[in-house]
């Protein structure tokens, strides 16, 4: 018993978005460059969006809740990118480096 649409079961989408989320998580945790780190965050947000739309299509296509939340995720991603990149450019201007490991000026 599972939800299948056009021959594609729902769990295919869930596995793809899990893999995309994990790749983005690795990028966020393991990169040595703040911009690459933000790219990882974007991939994670996209994985969440795939999940939201897939659940909307398979479980509740008549309601617009899934679409609304996917739209909110889209807007949050844009806001996050704007602020994150502004911070990175500002940090680069003052320290000439965007390596997150070297940005420990606020450490006690």
């Amino acid at each position: 018993m599972q939800n299948v649409l056009n021959g594609i079961p729902l769990w295919w989408y869930l596995v793809v978005s899990s893999a995309l989320f994990c790749i983005g998580l690795y990028g966020t945790l393991a990169r040595k460059n703040a911009i690459a780190l933000l790219m990882g965050v974007e991939l994670m947000l996209n994985a969440a969006n795939i999940n939201l739309i897939a659940f909307w299509r398979y479980l509740a296509p008549a309601s617009s809740g899934g679409l609304a939340f996917a739209a909110f995720v889209l807007v949050i991603a844009a806001a996050e990118a704007a602020v994150g990149l502004a911070l990175i450019i500002s940090i680069y201007r003052t320290t000439r480096s965007i390596d997150p490991e070297k940005l420990d000026r606020m450490k006690l």
Partner: peptide, 21 residues
Amino acid sequence: LVIFAVMLTRGMQGMVPRNSQ
């Protein structure tokens, strides 16, 4: 936006892609 940030922080691009963690 990302590409602009990459270009504005030039000189940060050839470094090792992975950190110590």
